[in-house]
Design a protein around this nucleic acid. Structure first.
Lengths: 112, 112
DNA sequence: ACGCTATACGTAGGCTCGCTACCTAACATC
DNA sequence: GATGTTAGGTAGCGAGCCTACGTATAGCGT
């Protein structure tokens, strides 16, 4: 998958991943891999800064904990994040409709 | 529609638009509007450079003409462009499957 | 003891590419 | 002559994802 394709959809992915319950960063990356059927293998340099961005935006909140000697930052959706997620899902639907309207047909009916 | 969403999908849109037959730049923009149900209103500063890029890549070829005193550059798909288009369509399907695998579900079955 | 892998977090810098803003020009209409 | 439509173009910006790197702990094999 060419990497630019993700542009502008990453936030939606992260919010949706947290919709099922709070997760820490590393677990989010694994969840994305699993739920995408292996297609999405996002580097930490993509995910961690994005989570910070979402936190600054108030869409997620985080808490530190220590499990088996390792520091974890666990993220959960906020109320605003939940709303942002529905917006993102709606935007995704509009986006796919628009693109598929173009990609879908070969020759096109005039003005129909 | 947030503008970054297009990233990495513009080439597919342009190639698909030309799949129905050769068009000049301005007409491509109008066709994209029509076929996307008005969702895609791409500025010339987006489309013209992209067409040049596709031409450099050998995916489209262009010819100048003059109609009613106005210069037109008409683009058509090349063989390589046709192949690139099928690749783009396949990539789009993979992309949507991946994203919808993540967006689609709320809570997720473990390892299922 | 040492190396390797997995787990877990992070930052700095770069690069791509669509968008904004702007310019040119012919024709039509008012 | 002003405005709008059709038609083409470029320069430069900025968002944001990725590459490459750095840090640290735990566990396993040898």
């Amino acid at each position: 998958m060419k990497s630019d394709a993700l542009r502008g959809h990453l936030d939606a992915l992260l919010l949706a991943t947290l919709d099922g319950g709070a997760l820490h960063g590393y677990a989010i990356i694994e969840a994305l891999q699993r739920r995408s059927g292996g297609a999405l293998d996002l580097p930490t340099g993509t995910v961690y800064p994005a989570l910070r961005r979402l936190e600054r935006a108030g869409h997620v909140a985080s808490e530190w904990s220590t499990v088996a000697g390792r520091r974890r930052r666990t993220y959960r959706l906020t109320g605003a994040g939940q709303r942002a997620l529905s917006d993102e899902r709606a935007a995704w639907r509009e986006f796919t409709v628009a693109i598929e309207g173009v990609l879908g047909g070969g020759p096109w009916p005039e003005q129909a």
